[in-house]
Design a protein around this nucleic acid. Sequence first.
DNA 1: TCAAAAGTGTTTTAATTACACCCATGC
DNA 2: GCATGGGTGTAATTAAAACACTTTTGA
Lengths: 225, 225
Amino acid sequence: MKIVENKYLESIQVQPDSYESSITADICLFGFKKGHLRILLVKRTVGKYKNSWLLPGGIMDDNETIDECAHKVLRCLIGVENVHISQVKAYTNIKRHPVKRVITISFYALIKPENHPIEQKMNVTQIKWFRLNELPNNIGFDHLEIIIDAHNLLKLNLKSNLIFGELLPETFTLNEMQSLYESILNKKLDRRNFRKKILQMNLLENTGIIKKGIKGGPYLFRKIK
Amino acid sequence: MKIVENKYLESIQVQPDSYESSITADICLFGFKKGHLRILLVKRTVGKYKNSWLLPGGIMDDNETIDECAHKVLRCLIGVENVHISQVKAYTNIKRHPVKRVITISFYALIKPENHPIEQKMNVTQIKWFRLNELPNNIGFDHLEIIIDAHNLLKLNLKSNLIFGELLPETFTLNEMQSLYESILNKKLDRRNFRKKILQMNLLENTGIIKKGIKGGPYLFRKIK
DNA sequence: TCAAAAGTGTTTTAATTACACCCATGC
DNA sequence: GCATGGGTGTAATTAAAACACTTTTGA
């Protein structure tokens, strides 16, 4: 299995600009760390965009769907099988890749960075979590547009669905959760109104445990079920 | 240009099940006629699904984006260039087409059927507007799923955006508009509340003209700008 | 003991829903 | 002239937004 992963990783990042017209899955992997919403970007060792930050992505095989491909990328990247992904959009501009025509279908996924240490793979010179409001200005291809589209969809889904993947730990304080919402929506929320709204959804339960090391002694909550 | 169109139309519908792995755009073309939201489906003359109703679609060329491809399909179908389209989703299941692998990216578009008489093309045995709540049960491929996804996105966009393409004529009564909304959302709306909400958006203007032939003498409205 | 963060309700405002009568027109 | 559909406003309910003090804990 490890071999398969490496094979894929290479096709994803080692042999850029060398494949035939391809369909790829690019992943906007969002994480929440130190109070900020972040996204994982990589730099490749070769290819035209080797000095640019890029979304991690992979080429879709003959025998896999684009969703399976997206999961494959995540498996290579963080070694996790069952992360929930959401399809965002297809990008088909003819000149988006300098050598060959590449069609990309983008996804977003939500993880907790602490749970998934990122291994530096050989074909990637750098790999880094960026704050969403401090993105580098050298993002390659049309990946900035892809990031913006994914973030917009995430915001939309957050309001209606209250799905936040594993952006938060197993147990968390309501203020941590509020802070996550504020990061994603990029605005301040009223503490009392936020708690009222979230709690009356009956999707969280109070563990009764107080988180240590924080002034005020906040209760830890978890998702029900 | 007419030749080009025919060439495309053939590749879309005459030579099914005979192409290499392809990327297609399938169009959920919604129309509003006789008080019902409808969708245009076609039957092809050949291929495994020749007895099934299908969404109109076309193969993406090397030198066009998927959006251009979608417009091409609409041009072939109804001869119109500048219809607004919305991308919905990519479908990549491996076995969705019986012969070759076909990746489909779906779109929806909104037109007024009366404005666009549908020509029967040679490769299509039938072409018909179906009421969305009376779809045939022999819909080919995964096109029923595609229709449902597109309709759901349309409902979502209707609530937030108030974009209804050209589903309504240039001028229309508020009750015609309400009837359209009820068809799309599939539920009854309160007449006074609907009018209040729509009018206070300030996106419509009253032409001052009364539509003849209807009891009550309703005013005709149009979109501003 | 004091600074920082947690926890908690009420009031105000805005948005949504429910509801009934008279008027205009076509037949 | 009468049946059908068009047009209109207000009250009730519900949801969202604004707002301040007390308690707990770490340093």
